[in-house]
């Protein structure tokens, strides 16, 4: 089925079996293998990408549902030559061991920081009418959809903390 998706700023015309998930279209069809497949059931967050600026699990969405959407993957966040601040922060804070969950952690963190900037509440938000203050409890709760098997959580929190409050 014909589907056009703007991926990292570039319009890509696809013709895919309707069963193809957005994740598989990115990895197998467009060869953007930075986005990882972990559980393939929305439980681990490794496949997190930004769709029109919002973070989602790309494994739980069909490519054909994204005709006309703009998708940002880790390849669109920064490059080896020019790391995004959050990528540098993950290096500086040693926020990974094996690195498999890292692209999803970074895309999720970017989406999460925008949600905080938009004052979206979480279950840690006590005053629903106030301005969100990104405490560590808030940060951890908002990142709970991203699992790190190496358990680098303290460093991941530190890396996100390092870029929070300024443009990532």
């Amino acid at each position: 089925m014909k589907t056009t998706i703007t991926v990292n700023g570039e319009s890509r015309a696809l013709d895919v079996d309707p069963r193809t998930t957005l994740l598989d279209a990115l990895r197998e069809t467009l060869h953007l293998t930075g986005t990882k497949k972990g559980c393939d059931h929305g439980q681990c967050g490794a496949c997190t990408v930004l769709v029109n600026g919002t973070r989602i699990n790309s494994c739980l969405s069909l490519a054909v549902m994204h005709d006309g959407d703009a998708v940002t993957t880790i390849e669109g966040v920064g490059t080896v030559e020019k790391l995004a601040p959050i990528q540098q922060a993950f290096l500086t804070e040693d926020a990974f061991q094996c690195g498999y969950c890292t692209p999803g952690q970074i895309c999720s963190a970017l989406g999460m920081l925008q949600e905080v900037a938009d004052n979206w509440p979480s279950q840690e938000t006590e005053d629903l009418m106030g301005s969100i203050r990104l405490t560590d409890d808030e940060l951890r709760e908002r990142m709970s959809g991203n699992i790190c098997r190496c358990s680098a959580y303290p460093q991941i929190v530190a890396a996100i903390r390092a870029v929070s409050g300024r443009p990532a």
Binding site: T54, R55, I56, G111, W120, P121, S122, T125, L128, M129
Partner: peptide, 28 residues
């Protein structure tokens, strides 16, 4: 969950929604 009217007048609905799933799932 983030809608101003829901938060101010129906906070039980905001609280219930943010108790479910993850940020990524609730966005979809």
């Amino acid at each position: 969950a983030a809608h101003a009217q829901v938060r101010s007048r129906y906070p039980v609905l905001t609280q219930a929604i943010v108790a479910g799933g993850s940020g990524q799932l609730r966005n979809k």
